[in-house]
Design a protein around this nucleic acid. Structure first.
Lengths: 182, 182
DNA sequence: ACCTGAACACCGTTCAAGT
DNA sequence: ACCTGAACACCGTTCAAGT
C-alpha cells in the first residue's frame, strides 16, 4: 500500500470509529468520507461495503474477545467463566450501537466481511458453553446459536434508550435463566 | 371526510399493510403511495408520520390485545394467563417486522402517534404481571418496563432470519426465567 | 496506483398549483 | 376539501477523468 493510501485508510477508520460510536452502526458513509476529507471513491475503494468498515473497526475487539475466551477456558468454574465472557461481549456490542444486527446477519452470510470474525466469536462462546454444560452448571438444551441470540437480544435492549436503564437487571435475569439448570 | 378521501385513506392502508408485512416496518412510504396510485402529498396528508400509519395498521391488533388482557385477568392462574398473553404479543410483533422498535420508542415519546396504544399495552401487561406476582408464581423483581423489554428482545430475535428457527425455544427459556421465582 | 467528484437511482418531506 | 407532482436535501454506489 502506498503511503498516501495508508494515511487515508487510517484516517477514514478514525473518523468512522467516532461517527459510528455516536451515530450508531448505520451512520452515513458519505458523512464519514466528508469528515475524513476524502473523495467518495476513496472511501469505497478502501471499504467496499459497510461490513468491511465494521470489520476493520471491530477487528481488535474481536481478537480481544477470542483471547479472553481462551484464557477463560482454563480458569475458574465453567459457569462463571461463561458469564464473564458474555459480559465482555455485551460491553463491546454496547459501544457500537446496532452492530450486533450486522453480526447476526454475517453469521449466515459467507460473503460478508464480518463472517469469519463472527463465526470465531460464536465458536469461542460455544466452547465456553460446552465446558459449563459438561460441568452440569448450565442448562444442556442450549447451543452456540442460542447463546448468540441471547447476546443479541441483550444488546438490542441496550440499544433502545427507553430500555437501557434496566438492561443490567435484565442481563442478570436472562443469564440466570441460562446458567440455571431447568 | 369526503368520500374520495375516505377511499384513498383505506386504499393506502391496504397497500401499506401488505408492503409493511413483507418488507418490514421501514418499507418505503414512496412505494406505498406509488402502489396505492396516489400522490405523495395525499399519502402525507392522511398519515403525516410513519407512526401514524403504523398506528392505523395496528389499531385493531392493539384493541384485541387489550380485550384479551381483560379476559385473561380473570381466568386461570396468573402465571399461565401472563404467558398466554405474552405469546399473543409476540405473534403480533412477529407479523410486523421491526415494528417493536417503534413501539418501544413510542413508549417514552408522548408526541408519537403510537404513544397511547403502547402505554395501553404496557399497562395491560403490567396488570397481568402484578396479579401473577401477588400469587407468588412470578419473580417479584420485575416491572412493566422489564416485561416490555423482554417482549422486545424476543421479537428482535424473531426478526433476525438467522435466529428465528430457535425463537420458540428461546421464548420458552426466557419466559421460564421470568415465570420462575429466583 | 491512487484519488476525485459528477452522475444515477433512490429516499423523506414540503408546498405551490390545480380540481 | 382534497389531490398532484415538482422541488429540495439527503443517501448509497459507480465510474470516467485526473494526478
Amino acid at each position: 500500500m502506498r503511503a498516501d493510501a495508508k494515511k487515508n485508510h487510517d484516517h477514514i477508520l478514525d473518523v468512522a470509529r467516532e461517527l459510528l460510536a455516536t451515530g450508531g452502526a448505520d451512520a452515513s458513509l458519505r458523512d464519514v468520507a466528508r469528515k475524513a476529507g476524502v473523495g467518495l471513491g476513496t472511501m469505497y475503494r478502501h471499504f467496499p461495503t459497510r461490513e468491511t468498515l465494521l470489520e476493520a473497526l471491530l477487528r481488535s475487539s474481536f481478537d480481544r474477545l477470542s483471547a479472553s475466551a481462551v484464557e477463560l477456558e482454563r480458569t475458574g468454574p465453567g459457569n462463571t467463566a461463561l458469564l464473564s465472557w458474555l459480559r465482555e461481549v455485551i460491553v463491546l456490542a454496547r459501544h457500537y450501537g446496532g452492530a450486533i444486527r450486522s453480526m447476526v446477519a454475517a453469521l449466515e452470510d459467507e460473503s460478508s466481511a464480518l463472517h469469519a470474525s463472527c463465526v470465531g466469536v460464536k465458536a469461542a462462546g460455544t466452547r465456553l458453553l460446552a465446558r459449563a454444560q459438561s460441568e452440569g452448571t448450565v442448562r444442556p438444551d442450549l447451543d452456540g446459536a442460542d447463546l448468540f441470540a441471547i447476546v443479541g437480544a441483550l444488546a438490542w435492549i441496550n440499544d433502545q434508550p427507553a430500555l437501557s436503564q434496566r438492561s443490567d437487571h435484565l442481563f442478570a435475569i436472562i443469564t440466570d435463566a441460562v446458567l440455571t439448570k431447568p
